[in-house]
Design a protein around this nucleic acid. Sequence first.
DNA 1: CGAGGATTCTTCAGTTACTAAACAAAGAAA
DNA 2: TTTCTTTGTTTAGTAACTGAAGAATCCTCG
Lengths: 408, 408
Amino acid sequence: MSGPARVTHASTRAAVLDLVRAAGMISRVGLVNATGLTGGTISTVVRGLIDEGLVAETGHAESTGGKRRVMLQLNHFARYAVGVHLDDARITYVLTNLGGAVVARISRAGAAADEPAAVVARVAREVDALIDSVGVERGRILGLGLVAARPAEHQEFGRALERATALPVVLDHDATAAAIGEHWSGGVGATSTFAALFMGTGIGAGILLGGTTYRGPSGHTGEIGHTCLDLDGPRCWCGARGCLEVLAGPAAVVEQARADRALSRAAGLVGGRTRAATPVAADFAAISRAARQGNTRAVALLERSARYIAAAARGLANVLDLEVLVLTGPSFAIAGSVYLPVLRAELDSAFIARDAHPISVRLSPSAASAPAIGAAAIVLQSELVPRRQGLRLPDDLAAEEPPVFLAR
Amino acid sequence: MSGPARVTHASTRAAVLDLVRAAGMISRVGLVNATGLTGGTISTVVRGLIDEGLVAETGHAESTGGKRRVMLQLNHFARYAVGVHLDDARITYVLTNLGGAVVARISRAGAAADEPAAVVARVAREVDALIDSVGVERGRILGLGLVAARPAEHQEFGRALERATALPVVLDHDATAAAIGEHWSGGVGATSTFAALFMGTGIGAGILLGGTTYRGPSGHTGEIGHTCLDLDGPRCWCGARGCLEVLAGPAAVVEQARADRALSRAAGLVGGRTRAATPVAADFAAISRAARQGNTRAVALLERSARYIAAAARGLANVLDLEVLVLTGPSFAIAGSVYLPVLRAELDSAFIARDAHPISVRLSPSAASAPAIGAAAIVLQSELVPRRQGLRLPDDLAAEEPPVFLAR
DNA sequence: CGAGGATTCTTCAGTTACTAAACAAAGAAA
DNA sequence: TTTCTTTGTTTAGTAACTGAAGAATCCTCG
């Protein structure tokens, strides 16, 4: 009662390029099977990609009885993209090639309360340094992806950066970027439905449904940090009570640790003594270190946090029928090994669709720079995968119609 | 830094038909504005729809300075569809026209433990009776939508029903159907991102993102009933603790009411005394009645349930950036007036994206038969909105490639 | 070694679904 | 009546595909 699983893509060229990237190496026949297009179409599309220098023939597969397949690969060094992650604490820069592999990476202290114009100049300077450090021609750089927790607040910053760097700038949410980064740099299947659970200072999730980024009508998606886990819990700035972020976010973990004299001393927390720029991040790292070294109080604190996050993650998985869940972001980069088994256990035992398909839970191999890598991946997508012109459907249709009606 | 909001549709014909349906009445120029297509394209597409008898010209709008627009409307009685909702307690049948309006409706007791073959025969007979009751030609009936809480268990039933009724059968989840029904029968914008919160015996949600049904990779979407709201709450059959369904579902409300002697007597609960086929549904109705009549204990019970559901609904809205939330299904049909204000208050005060756009929370005008209406709407969609052939992307690409590789 | 089959890849004519632009029809304003 | 505006249709052209024929390459077996 239902046809074969088919997915409509933005454009054929983009779909083919995406398949070549995802497969690592694939033949034209492989593309025919994967796309459902005819050999003729694949032939011309691939020729175009080769002419543009994006794809290259790299050898032959063994014969299956007739002519050998010519294998195709992404020409990884044909194009580059810059990714910038603006965090309160740090600014992370990466330069990636077409495959999403990091070619250069630098990380600098955040620009907390500095003057905007000065920050733009500084970021532009650091982007230049990043590019110069590997000597990539500027003409081969497709653009700059800029991601932050609240992208809407950085629109003007983005425009200024566009002028300062002479690179096209795209702006996005950091959690969404992290998800796209995981998808682009492989590991997650091309059409998979997955979420990147992102923990920095706050907690969020980037969502890809069937390989397509889900951004929602206003871009405020994946706000899993404000999932309720205790109806009568402590108040959150969002207006609700018992939000995940308040109960189990890094700030909450750090606060709980600081209240524990013994743990504070053992882990060497700074928050109690100094007014450092980023006491939460530093102390969260210290607690994680203590946990790795076997401090039972630190372990208990993190596992308590993990149980809350696991419950929220299960809720997300149940709502979206997720196939993959990736833990990423600075905080999971530090403490992921504590959280991972707790989340796995939760989803193995109580994910509703577990009989229909498995859900793979894993730690990002590049959790700390995932948002920046994702920012670059968004540029790769937006430049190489031009959106096909679809149908514009304005919110208010009725308003465009004349109000008066005369019966015939 | 971002283009105009555009949406790709399955096919132009379908998109135009959908716009005509959603708008109720619209001109060709209105369609041009709404779709972004040119006048020429709209002209030919509309001609095709008129030739098929699906759309009709119904008069003129007032002039805006030149020629008056010819208004188009759906030809509501050109086609029909049957919707069947299989519930443990009841089987609901509807016959709808092209606009999703109910033309005939019957409801019968559920077929709990009867023999499958007998149930198929009975349902086929009742469908015939439904159709005969309004004398619609069978050739104008596009098909039969069959929805249930666990559609996967009814595959064989669906096939048998297809043979018995000689109508094409499509199978789907009841909550998803309810959402599609709300969308199809208007009230919710064409491209809106919304969820239908469905409460029958369990709690689920049907999800439409940007006007497109979200079914997930295995169809287990919107399982909001297993959202965790208490880490150390009571065990649920799903394997977790503190699930919404266990804390606040109709069964939980009824159980709590039965434990209250005074309330049991006042509301006249049957569950304690008899072994009726559907004690939960009947008692939930009794509690709702008592609440409406001012019984403070009944009100308190339902409001407690509502607070839990509101928290879970807020989580869903925060994750998906919802624009609309519709309460539907038998239990909301009975007690929706108690739940609605609680959900509204929760989302007004703590929905993350509330500064970006409002979220409209409302009660379905046809909550009791929403799944059946949605089942019919699915038929209308699947028959009138043929999926465009997209790109097939098999899960396992690598397997199709020959394993051995020879460098050139 | 060479003919024949298998498989891969390209070419080319034809189809579909669009756009752009000219045109025709209908009403408003002067 | 003339002119302008707006609506809707027609037509020629284009992009992106399909289907089928054919060329290229490799394997196998006599």
